[in-house]
Design a binder for these strands. Structure first.
Lengths: 236, 236
DNA sequence: CGGATTGTTGAGGATACTCAAGTTAGGTGG
DNA sequence: CCACCTAACTTGAGTATCCTCAACAATCCG
């Protein structure tokens, strides 16, 4: 609920190249908020009154279709922007953002966006690069869903997750926040049943470790071979 | 091959709000190029040496996967940016852009991008909005591919095409550049066989008119009902 | 007019979904 | 701390959708 200190901003990529005076000015209009696991920052269809930068924790961004199915658009990691509907030319949020673990985010009123972009080109540049990264990820998903069989799609989904949000550990790359089979299914465009069968097969082969909302990628390299089609799938 | 006149720039959304002096300055570093149908502006994997704004014609942007399958990323219409790999944080083009009809585009050296963005916030704002639109379209495709059966997916693909690149005519909305069944399949994530069957069924119902690389949407409203699942599909 | 590209249509079959039933894990309250 | 309850997950069986394979037809262009 309080305005953040400049040192917090400085550690976030969008603000990394600003001077102390500039940071203070930007910090002055920000609000720091704590979201407990399960709380949402904003909902699909709401007026886009604020935009956010995540400081700590993880968010899951989802969309609901008109027929009630849900898809996971992305996971938001610390340092990333979200809720920037205005920059994308919208007045409402196209999706819902929810904290999957206790999270801290900075919020600015949406009408600060244009001013910040205009006055701080380095912010604009980083923001555009982040949007670009999301666009490329989206195209990768489209490509995968168009051309790959489920097992490879789930492979790429898991690998992307490991790369973007994973934590290196002695045994492998751990996804250190709760992720359900249903979530993975909604990311890969399949059902939780199919994800369950695939992960069980991979677990038996020692590629991954799974559990209730748990995921550990033990052999990313071999998983990549499967995802890229260089090695036969393990299902069935 | 020649530098363009400021009046040409002024008609393009990214430059619409600049002064004559600013336009002249931007025009000075631009090259106007004619691409005959079938020529490519750049290829997937090439160094991103230039970015473009299309003035006339249509481009088709495609990606080839490691296994040789192709997908259509998008169609580029006059007034739109393309080849902005640098802005998205890349050094190479992630896709190939090819003229589907004779087209004119303006080209700038990639290293002009940062300078233009920094000095002309209105350009930056329009550019970000365009990238945002692409991101939303990509998410719509992901949502459709995750949750919808083929016929509805093809419906949404055709409707998007009609909306973005169609031309109102007495009989309906015409796609006035060559578009093959294979192209539609690569946009909808299916095969040309399935697209052919679906369009034949729609044609028999009077929803569309089709032909070799031709497409006319006669009843967009009824097609929308099918695409949105409010009405039964016509296939089989 | 001939070749090449694009599109049509049918048959068969595999992939992955749906439906169903049960199991495990974790959190909560007594 | 244990019992219970719910949410998450597993596994099996049957089947629909849509892809693959195949052969042919139509259209365009030079």
């Amino acid at each position: 609920m309080t305005a953040p200190d400049r040192s917090i901003l400085k550690a976030l990529p969008p603000f990394a190249r600003l001077t102390d005076a500039e940071l203070d000015e930007i910090a002055a209009t920000a609000t720091s908020r704590l979201y407990c696991a399960g709380m949402s920052l904003y909902g699909q269809g709401d007026d886009a009154e604020e935009f956010y930068v995540v400081v700590l924790g993880r968010l899951r961004v989802t969309q609901i279709t008109s027929t009630g199915e849900q898809i996971v658009v992305r996971v938001v990691n610390p340092g990333e922007l979200c809720g920037i509907a205005h920059a994308l030319g919208r007045t409402t949020y196209p999706a819902t953002a929810m904290a999957v673990v206790d999270s801290v985010a900075l919020a600015w009123p949406t009408d600060r966006w244009d001013d910040i972009v205009r006055r701080f080109p380095s912010f604009a540049q980083v923001a555009m690069g982040m949007i670009g990264g999301r666009l490329q990820e989206a195209h990768a998903r489209i490509r995968e869903m168009s051309t790959e069989v489920v097992e490879r799609r789930v492979g790429h989904t898991v690998l992307r997750l490991a790369q973007q949000s994973g934590k290196r550990e002695p045994e492998g790359i751990r996804i250190d926040f709760p992720i359900s089979k249903q979530d993975l299914a909604e990311m890969a465009g399949t059902t939780l049943h199919t994800v369950s069968r695939i992960l069980t097969a991979w677990e038996e082969a020692g590629l991954v470790g799974t559990g209730r909302q748990k995921l550990l990628v033990k052999e990313p390299h071999r998983l990549l071979l499967i995802a890229d089609g260089a090695e036969e799938g393990l299902l069935r």
